[in-house]
Structure formats: C-alpha cells, structure tokens
Computed example of a mutant assay.
Amino acid sequence: MNGKHMTGAIAGALVAGLGLTVMMMAGERKSGKPSELTELERAGARELGVRFVPQDDRLPDATEQAIVQGGHLLLSAAAGAVYAASVDEDAGVVASGVAFGLAFYAAMHWITGPLLGLKKPEWQSDVGTIGMHTLNHVVFGLATAAGAKALAKR
C-alpha cells in the first residue's frame, strides 16, 4: 500500500469531516437545537452509564462540543484509513468515492448506530433526512477518494 495514498485518503476524509462539522455547528446555532451528532454522543454517554449527560434540548458547551466534534474527526480519519486500505490507488475517484460514501453511510446509519442503540433505525427516518445523510456521505466519500488520488500520484 502506498503511504501517500493513505495520507491523502485521511486528509481528504478530515477535510470532508471538518466541513460537515462546521455545517452541524452552524445548524445548532441557527436552530437553537443540538445537532444529530450531539444527540448521538449523548446517547452513547447514556449507554456507557455516564452520570451527567446534558439535557436533550440544551446546546453543547465548549467542552462537549470538543468531545463531539473531536470524536467525529477521529471517525473521519479512521474512515479515510479504511478507504485507503480497501481501495486500490488506481481506482476512479467518482466510482470509488460514491461507493465508499454509500458503504460508510450504510455501516454507520443503517447498521452500527441502531445496533448500538444510539439512534433509531435509518429506515424510520423521513425521506429528507435519508436524502441529506446520503448526500453528506457521498460527498465525504468523494473527498476521501479525491484526497487519496491527489497524493498517491505525487
């Protein structure tokens, strides 16, 4: 495996993850409601038996936001590493990026989140939510693939 391919995939995933983080934080400020990512973190904390978990309607403070967004970026980096380990560096950006984004979306929202009790099953979501999640993960996959391709060829 090419180290540049791995580095590029992780960098692309981090850039995409950061973009999604900014969108979620802006949405929190605009709506006055915690983001879905904050809700997932709180559900996870409850599952782990954490005694103090902020109320569901309360916006995250700076410490909680750092935990939520830091965890999101770590997951993004790990996903980038999975992309690099599982996709050949000669793969096309569009095909591999879309496929990876959809696979990652399915793994997180359709399987892992519900199995861990962190979120309701995705099939119970409305069409708009499913569409938004699909689009976000396809863009994530494309950015990951583009990063991997850009550095692998240097």
Rank of each mutant, 00 (worst) to 15 (best):
M1K: 05
G3A: 14
K4M: 15
K4T: 13
A9D: 01
I10G: 00
G12T: 08
G12W: 02
L14P: 04
L14K: 12
G17P: 03
G17M: 13
L20A: 14
L20Y: 03
L20T: 07
L20F: 10
T21Q: 08
V22M: 10
V22K: 02
M23G: 09
M25C: 05
M25P: 04
G27Q: 03
G27D: 07
G27A: 11
G27C: 05
E28L: 04
R29P: 00
R29C: 05
S31Y: 05
S31R: 00
G32M: 10
K33L: 04
S35F: 08
E36Y: 15
T38I: 09
T38C: 09
E39H: 10
L40C: 04
E41I: 12
E41Q: 10
R42G: 03
A43V: 11
L48N: 04
R51E: 15
P54K: 07
P54D: 04
Q55S: 11
D57R: 12
L59G: 06
P60V: 13
P60Q: 10
P60T: 08
D61Y: 08
A62E: 12
T63Y: 06
E64D: 01
Q65R: 15
I67H: 00
Q69A: 11
G70V: 02
G70E: 06
G71K: 07
H72T: 02
L75E: 06
A77P: 00
A77G: 10
A79H: 06
A81W: 04
V82K: 00
V82L: 08
V82A: 11
S86G: 13
S86H: 10
S86D: 04
S86F: 13
E89Q: 14
A91F: 07
G92D: 11
G92R: 12
A95Y: 01
V98R: 00
V98G: 00
A99I: 03
A99E: 06
G101M: 05
F104A: 07
F104V: 08
Y105T: 02
A106Q: 07
A107E: 05
A107S: 09
T112A: 15
T112E: 07
G113P: 00
L115R: 02
L115I: 05
L115Y: 04
L115T: 01
L118F: 11
L118D: 12
L118N: 02
K119T: 08
P121L: 13
E122W: 11
Q124E: 13
Q124M: 13
S125E: 13
V127D: 11
V127T: 00
G128R: 12
G131F: 15
G131A: 14
M132S: 04
L135C: 13
L135N: 09
L135F: 15
H137E: 09
V138A: 09
V138Y: 14
A145S: 14
A145W: 06
A146C: 01
G147Q: 04
K149G: 01
A150H: 05
L151R: 10
K153D: 05
R154V: 14
